[in-house]
């Protein structure tokens, strides 16, 4: 029961600071907005039939998640680092002195919120693509199926992206619990996520490319959006998300140990 009370308190904490609604709105807007822009740009292409321009429409239509995740990172970091920034961690631990309970309550509320905004962003992206694509080169006449949640790989890409965002949030949260600092945690997370895609653009050795794609939380994690070329030699969708899950689990555990063992 005490954990239920702690979760309720954490929800109140999160919703009663002015920055939260703004962050949540921006995260959804960036995810759906950038997805829409990318989809729209692709839809202007003319494709010589029957050769397809682009195979993976679900993945294309969910591109915004790669940018929306930056706001998820900020939200997740703030949930923990603000406690240290404002020194209110002392008050929180006086109210909930069992530290694992405070830690899990915050994580639960964060995960719930990210699942909701992730779903809104992802479904918004998909709806836009469904409206726009049929009138373009990616029409049924050219051999493209309309995007549908009844299509199993598309459905997996959609809820997989929501899971991806939730795992990125938990990873960021764990990092913030270790570092106890907003700027440092956000910087660490942005480097961890966005450096690998830059590296893959400059590294030419195929063995290294494969290695980077297999360990990068962003590249491996986003394989969950793939609906074509599923027999990719690097890493499959669920294995890829599994890599991100390992990152998140490691960070969560390290954050919990830091909270349990260090002075507040």
């Amino acid at each position: 029961m005490s954990t239920v009370y702690a979760i309720r308190a954490e929800w109140t904490k999160l919703r009663t600071v002015v920055s939260t609604p703004w962050l949540l709105f921006t995260a959804v807007a960036v995810t759906a907005g950038i997805s829409a822009m990318v989809t729209n740009a692709a839809s202007n292409r003319t494709c010589p039939v029957p050769s397809p321009c682009l195979d993976d429409l679900p993945k294309l239509s969910l591109t915004g998640a790669q940018y929306g995740q930056a706001l998820v990172v900020v939200l997740a970091v703030l949930v923990m680092s603000e406690e240290y920034g404002t020194r209110s961690i002392g008050v929180s631990l006086m109210a909930v002195p069992r530290r694992w309970r405070l830690y899990l309550s915050k994580a639960a509320v964060l995960t719930g919120v990210v699942v909701v905004i992730g779903s809104l962003g992802v479904l918004g992206s998909l709806l836009f693509a469904r409206q726009v694509l049929p009138g373009t080169a990616f029409s049924a006449a050219n051999g493209y199926q309309g995007l549908s949640l009844r299509d199993e790989p598309t459905l997996r890409a959609v809820y997989g992206t929501v899971l991806y965002l939730a795992l990125v949030a938990l990873l960021s949260y764990g990092v913030a619990a270790m570092l106890r600092d907003t700027a440092g945690s956000v910087a660490t997370m942005l480097i961890l996520l966005y450096v690998a895609p830059i590296l893959t653009a400059v590294v030419t050795d195929p063995r290294w490319l494969t290695r980077i794609e297999r360990v990068s939380p962003m590249i491996a994690g986003l394989k969950i959006q793939a609906t074509t070329a599923l027999d990719s030699p690097t890493i499959g969708p669920w294995q890829g998300l599994g890599v991100l899950a390992l990152w998140a689990a490691g960070a969560l555990l390290a954050g919990l140990l830091s909270l349990q063992l260090r002075d507040a």
């Binding site: 009370y5 308190a9 109140t12 920055s19 603000e82 020194r87 209110s88 008050v91």
Partner: peptide
């Protein structure tokens, strides 16, 4: 009361007390 300044500045006084109350039923 250890440190009066250790309160989130972006939250109202009532909401600060509200979450504290909720955490301890």
């Amino acid at each position: 009361l250890l440190d009066a300044a250790a309160v989130h500045p972006g939250r109202s006084a009532r909401n600060h007390l509200l979450w504290l109350a909720q955490s301890n039923a």
